[in-house]
Structure formats: structure tokens, C-alpha cells
Amino acid sequence: MNRPALEIVDPGLQTTVQAWPGRRGLTALGYFPSGPMDHLSFRAANVLVGNAAGAPALEVPKMGLSIAFLVETQVAVTAPAGTGIYVNDTPAPAWETIAVHPGDVLRTVNATNPGFRLYLAVRGGIIAPTIFGSAATSLISGIGGIEGRALVRGDLLAAADRPPIQPRRLPESMRPSVVTDWEVEILPGPHGSPHYLTETDWQELLTRQWRVDLNSDRVSTRLNPHRFTWARPDGGIAGGHPSNVLDDAYPVGGVLANGDVLTILGMDGNTSGGFAVVATVPHCALWKVGQMRPGRDTIRFREIDYDEALALNKRVDFTVDPSRTVTVT
């Protein structure tokens, strides 16, 4: 039996064990991939403790967490600027390897600063069962992580035994910029203009400022209602509203038109349904959706093409390459 490495003292809002890239290739079986909402910060946290980028680690929404360590190990917290990180009430750095000892208590706090999620990786990676190819927690299907659920007070988590590493830091210039007013890249379609939205609708989509609704979570990021003109009067045999389509597969990051409400499908989203997907947030920009604070932040969409999406993906991968870290002496 694996020796516990840490105990959850206060799990915060909905802390889960996640792994990247999640359960790929299973949408036909009804599983979205799960995994971290902000894959950039998640991968960076693992790199900073010498793990593989996708090793199981903690996703902490709204920044609140308190954990006690039962062994000597190293951790890293990747968090938006201004997040309070404390070990035994002494401030500790984000985006840097932190040494902890048995009995130490790490606490994170953020009430008002931009951003919504932080990630905590433990040297060796948190041990969780692999289900359908991943240890990522899916709260919808109740699998992965710790019993397929959010963590609760008293949970004991084990980590694989790995030798200590030389402490590392990701330079500030390489860290993602977390804001309250976001520019989010999108690719058109698959149900875009001119067959679903009009050209005027598409321009409205790109030029309007959209507010992130309070009712947003890992399933979807809901935006404020807006009535488009639409290029057709109704959905035909699919339904009365023009956004209705015959059931179709949904992509991760799909901008779904649920009637007059747009939602961005998250990592625990639905795999299919009967609403038009008017645009798609590419992989390179999904981390931004993961850091949007419900009820406060706003979005403007920027159209890009496939080649630019690939180039931006390479930039994200460059950021989390272990060679980008610097040694802390």
C-alpha cells in the first residue's frame, strides 16, 4: 500500500485530481476527456517538480485550499498573480519548486484578483487509478481521481516516490497573463455562417463583449444571452429554434448556441446534442477559459485560422518545456 503524502485539511470549493490530456478518443462512448481546465498552468506545475507534464495533480477552483504534508517532498503551485501561498503562514512563491516537510501546512488564498484556478503538483505525481486511460476526475460520470469525486476534508493522497530535484522557477516573462477582460481565439463552425449564422451575426459574435455568467463550471462556461438574426427561420425537423440541429458530436471548446445563450464547452462537457456549434475555441486558448471568473469576467472573440491555431499551440508547448525553467540556487 502506498504511503500517504498529504492530507486535505480544507478542500475549498471543488478541488479535484486531474491528469492531462485526459481520456482522448472516447467521445463516441459518451466521455469528454476531463483533465485540467487550464492545461498550461497544470503542465507547468508538473514540470517544476520534475514530473511528466500530464502527471496527476490538483486543480483548485477559486484558489482556496489547505493541505498538511505527511512526508518530506517538493511541490509547485502555479497560480494567477496575487494569489496568496503560505507554508506554515510564511509566504511561499508561485511558479517555483517548494520544499515541504512532515507537519507543514500549505494554504492558498485569493479573494479578488484576476483568475479562477490554481494547480498544485507533488514530486512523483499523485497516485490515482487509471480508468479508460487516464486518472483525470470526471465529476459527471463519477470516475477517475479519488472515487470520481471532488476532494473532502480528511482525504489522504499518496505520491510516487521520486528523488529530490534541483529547485526550478518559471520566469515571469513565460507565465500566462491572467486578466478580467479576455481575448479568446476561435475557429469558425462547424455550424457557422452563412448556413446558420448570418454574416452580420458572425461580426456581432466577434465585436460584442460577452460576460461570463455565474452559472459556469467544468461542464460549460455560460455567456450572457443574445438574440442573433440567424440565416434560417427555424431548425426544420430538428426543432423550432434556428439553433436546433439533428444530434451531432460536440468538440471540446465548442461555442454552443443553446437557443439565445452561448456556452463554451468545458473538459466535462456533453459529447453530443441538438444545438449548433457556431465556433470552436482551439486547444491553444482553452487555458484562458479555465481562468475566467464566473459572474465577473468578460470575453471578446478573435477569429483565427487553422495555421495560426497550430502556431499558438507551439507557443504554449514552448512555455511548458522543461528547458524554459531556470535553476533556483
Rank of each mutant, 00 (worst) to 15 (best):
L205E: 11
T180H: 13
G239L: 03
S177V: 15
T180A: 15
T200C: 05
S173H: 04
G235F: 02
A238N: 05
S220P: 02
Q203I: 04
G154R: 06
R162G: 00
R153F: 09
E185V: 11
R222D: 05
L265V: 03
L214W: 10
D161E: 10
I264T: 03
E199P: 08
P225R: 07
D268V: 04
A238S: 14
D260H: 13
I165A: 09
D161T: 12
G254P: 11
M174V: 09
H191D: 10
L205V: 12
A257G: 15
P167W: 02
K288G: 01
R169V: 07
P164V: 05
R227F: 06
P167C: 07
L246N: 00
A257P: 08
P163N: 07
D247L: 01
P251W: 10
E199W: 15
I186D: 11
P164K: 00
S177W: 06
R153M: 05
V277I: 12
G154V: 04
L214M: 05
A150L: 06
S272A: 06
T221E: 01
A160N: 10
R162C: 10
Q209A: 08
R232E: 02
A257H: 07
S220K: 03
L265D: 03
T198S: 13
A150F: 14
P164I: 03
S216W: 04
V219A: 07
P188L: 04
T198W: 12
G235M: 00
G154T: 03
R168G: 01
S177I: 14
G273T: 08
A159F: 08
P171L: 04
P225D: 06
R222Y: 01
G148D: 14
T200P: 00
P282Q: 08
L262K: 06
A231T: 01
T229L: 13
S272I: 00
N258V: 11
F275K: 12
L170Q: 09
V184D: 09
A276Q: 04
G259N: 06
P282R: 08
L151R: 08
K288E: 13
Q166E: 14
V219P: 00
G259T: 01
D268R: 10
R227I: 10
T207G: 06
H283Q: 13
P171Q: 09
L214F: 14
R218Y: 04
I237L: 14
E204L: 11
P163V: 11
K288F: 01
N224K: 13
R218L: 10
M267I: 04
G189A: 15
R222H: 03
M174P: 00
R169F: 02
L246V: 09
H241D: 05
R162P: 00
P164A: 02
W202Q: 15
R218W: 13
R208C: 07
